[in-house]
Amino acid sequence: MNILHISDIHFRKTYLLKNTDYLEMLAKMQSPLTHLEECLTEVLANHRIDVLIISGDLTEDGEVEDYYFLKQWLLNIVGSIPIIVTLGNHDIKSNFREGWFAELPSEDFYNDVMHFPDVSIIAFDNSYFGYPNGIVDSKQFEWLKNQLINAKGRPIIFVTHHHLLPTQITMPEWPGSKQLIQLLQSHNIKCILNGHTHHPFISDIQGIPYYTVSGMSFIGEDEGDGLVRFEEAYGYNLYRFSDEKITEQSSRNVKPGKLLKMIKM
């Protein structure tokens, strides 16, 4: 089974007016769909992909039409390949539901489970719009416990938006990380996938392979004293899942060297 993992597209058909340094930075950026099309074209020309995983921040505070446009754009390229998503802190749940699924708007957490012959993929929503570090919700943990129990020992790929390890970057990890890791340890988790940081990272958590994928839009490099250098950057991860484990992993990470803006955070 071949899995393509992307994250943090931060798409908008039209970015907001330039009234902050961050928005001015976004306005200087190429459309993330330019990078995404390059990556998808490259991958699909060389690999048979069984599922596409997007680990959050599909849009940049997107409207309903942004989600609708992005989904149709993706389907036009990937065709019938299943897509499983989780949401990030820049995703507005009501707009996502209305634009992505044509459902009634709701601010409820969005979780998903997709079953394949050899593995189940659980997408767990740990984000909420306006909370950069994510939030912890007891009902979310209860939902996840039930899903893990219902899996009855099947192999699981676990997907969420925020990173879980405090040592991987200066950004704070998700505040529910310790509780989540304790829960996952007692089940048949074969890998953990996430985004959010825009910085690729590979490690393991108590023996579980852990992959943070590059963003598909920009990257922030800490220059010290609160100064962050924003550049265009994009990439993806590929995984081969067989024999109930990740048997191959590869990444493509591109930094064209285009400075977008230096921002005092």
Rank of each mutant, 00 (worst) to 15 (best):
H198T: 10
L227V: 03
H198Q: 11
W143D: 00
H35L: 01
F201S: 05
C39S: 13
E103N: 08
H163S: 08
K28F: 05
I92H: 01
C191L: 04
H198R: 08
P172A: 12
K255W: 11
G215L: 04
D61A: 15
K245N: 14
A151W: 06
G176M: 06
L75G: 07
L58E: 00
V254Y: 12
S31W: 09
E103R: 11
L87K: 09
I219A: 08
E38A: 13
Q185S: 15
A27H: 12
V254A: 05
D243K: 12
N253M: 03
K139Q: 15
T247H: 08
K261A: 01
V51K: 01
G207P: 08
V78Y: 07
V51N: 03
E103A: 14
L23A: 06
T20C: 10
K13E: 12
E244R: 13
L164W: 08
V85P: 00
S203Y: 03
H199R: 09
I92W: 07
P117F: 10
E221Y: 08
N194P: 06
P155G: 13
L75V: 12
S177M: 06
T247A: 10
I3F: 03
Q147V: 03
L227Q: 04
V228G: 02
L16R: 11
S251Q: 15
R154T: 05
N95A: 09
G224P: 04
R252N: 14
H199C: 07
P175E: 14
G226N: 10
A102I: 09
V78D: 03
S203D: 14
M216I: 02
I189S: 04
H196K: 01
S203G: 12
N76K: 14
R48F: 04
P200F: 06
F109P: 07
P105C: 04
L259D: 11
Y67R: 03
P132Y: 13
I205V: 15
N253L: 13
Q72W: 04
V43E: 10
L259A: 05
S177H: 12
P155Y: 08
E107R: 06
P82D: 06
Q147G: 02
T14Y: 11
V43D: 11
A233Q: 06
I9P: 01
D8L: 04
N253C: 09
S217G: 07
F201M: 06
L36I: 08
H10E: 06
S242P: 01
L227I: 08
D108F: 01
I49L: 07
S250Q: 11
D50N: 14
S31D: 13
E173G: 01
